[in-house]
Amino acid sequence: MTGPVVRVVLADDQPLVRAGLRVLMADTPGIEVVGEAGTGAEALQLAREIRPDVVVMDIRMPGMDGIEATRLITADGGATRVLVLTTFDDDDYVYGALRAGASGFLVKDMALEDILAAIHVVAAGDGLIAPSVTRRLIEEFAARPEPTPSVRRTAGGITDRECEVLTLVGRGLSNAEIAAELVITVATVKAHVARLFTKLDSRDRVQLVIIAYELGLVEPPR
């Protein structure tokens, strides 16, 4: 038996890019393209009208750009998630998209199977960033001054256990791996992660990873 179909809106100002993605996704089980947009404003309108599972969003579009469209879509409080897919992996775009609430950031030169897999990951409530972008994020956080222990303990009012969970999320562990590491159930891990979302005002695991680095809970690789 097949799983639920992920309903996708494609937002890109280049018709050929949208057409190419639509054709490729048409042959992919579990993904259905339900709309196309050539501007950020159109993407926002479709997101509000169709309520897709995922908007695959370009950044540089005429009028309202993809970052502003992402901010407005995620601010609606609905279940629609945004996966940024762009040619430009400039730091300002990366940070802007993630702060706007994007659940993922990919570049268009990635393998198609990775992009399709990312759509399913984002639709399931997780998040991810292209490996090349992740390396730069880590380097940027590594260059920041180390926060004091007192700052870490009071960050968002999280408990010691929640801090442990956040640290492991920052290291990239799945819920099952965190459960094994802390000798607790997966359900308990999910409950801790849900509370971290609320306390740290975070939409998904991508933002939790960023927060873990910002708080100095995870040591970036040197």
Rank of each mutant, 00 (worst) to 15 (best):
T167C: 11
R22P: 09
V133G: 02
A43P: 04
L168T: 03
F88K: 05
I129P: 05
A187Q: 14
K108L: 08
D109S: 10
V121E: 07
V107Q: 03
V17K: 00
L85S: 00
G77R: 04
L106K: 02
G127C: 11
A100I: 07
D160E: 15
E164I: 00
D58R: 01
L10S: 03
H120F: 13
E32N: 11
A123K: 01
G127S: 11
V82I: 11
R153H: 14
T74W: 06
D114Q: 13
R60V: 13
V23D: 14
I31M: 10
A69Y: 00
F197Y: 15
N175M: 13
D90F: 03
T2M: 15
L182K: 02
V209K: 06
T148P: 08
D53T: 00
I184H: 02
I73E: 01
S103R: 02
V193T: 13
A69H: 00
R22Y: 11
D89E: 15
T86N: 03
I119L: 09
Y213M: 11
D89Y: 06
F197W: 13
V33Y: 04
E36F: 07
V122R: 01
G78A: 10
R81W: 09
V55N: 01
E139D: 15
V151I: 12
E49Y: 00
L46T: 02
R153E: 15
L166N: 02
A194W: 13
